[in-house]
Amino acid sequence: MQVMKKTDRGLSNKNLLNTFVELIRRASSDLPVDVVTAIKEGLLTEKRNSIAYKTLQMILKNIKLAKEKSLPMCQDTGTPVFYVTLPNPPLSPFVKGGCSGIRGIINQAIKESVHKLYLRPNIVDTLTGKNLGDRTGPGYPVINFEEWEKDYIKVILMLKGGGCENVGTQYALPDSRVNAGRDLEGVRRCILDAVHKAQGRGCSPGILGVCIGGDRVSSYEESKRQLLRSLDDRNENPVLGKLEQSIMKDSNRLGIGPMGFGGKTTLLGVKIGSLCRIPPSYFVSVTYMCWAYRRRGFEYENEKVRRWLY
């Protein structure tokens, strides 16, 4: 009976809508503290008044300005990628229309965010080339739904810029171009090759999300999901943790630096996960995130935000 009662009460879509708009504002204008800290740490490794130092200084100034003005830190407000975790239906505080109800609220929140200048009108019909303005359409935004046993909603939003998305890449091992076999040394070679090929074009210093294994789609998906981890966390798997450290160290030896101008800060972080695979496939997927690593989240319970994430 108690469960029924909770279900009956329902959630106000208006409150949830406002929370989504605030989520978008925070994501677009206010860079999470783990990322800002990593950029500051990068600055300290660079020679004072070198171009790398000045570039990172300028980036920090930009971050501060965007926060003060509640305006996009980068005009490419990217593809909004949402990760929505809903309570199991019997426990669920009712959101009208379930997943499609949430989708409707998100689409409305995007429309409002375009009018408030938190987002650029950033969606184009691929066939006609026409900009759809404040509207949304198939593939934009990306929304991933999941369920869990807790009785509140969790939402994470990542704004994924186009420049860095374009330098993401996938390898199928063995890969003779980079002399990579089907082992961790092969994986290492692929990832370092991706960092080298990207140069500054993904707006370095960047953050890598990597997945080893899976099929082509799940592998790319998991590589992006790795970016939800905090920059200062530790990989639960010691083998992957060691690989992360090794890639980080070697990448920052390449000398590419901020924007490819040269310097020690090529990457701010490396996050690697793995999925099972079938014997014929061995994928290494790399998602490159620019320094404007915009991700924010919230937990929502009883008509209000339980806590903000990141």
Partner: peptide, 9 residues
């Protein structure tokens, strides 16, 4: 070359 992401500055 301008600095990527420097939208506010």
């Amino acid at each position: 070359h301008a600095i990527g992401g420097l939208a506010q500055v």
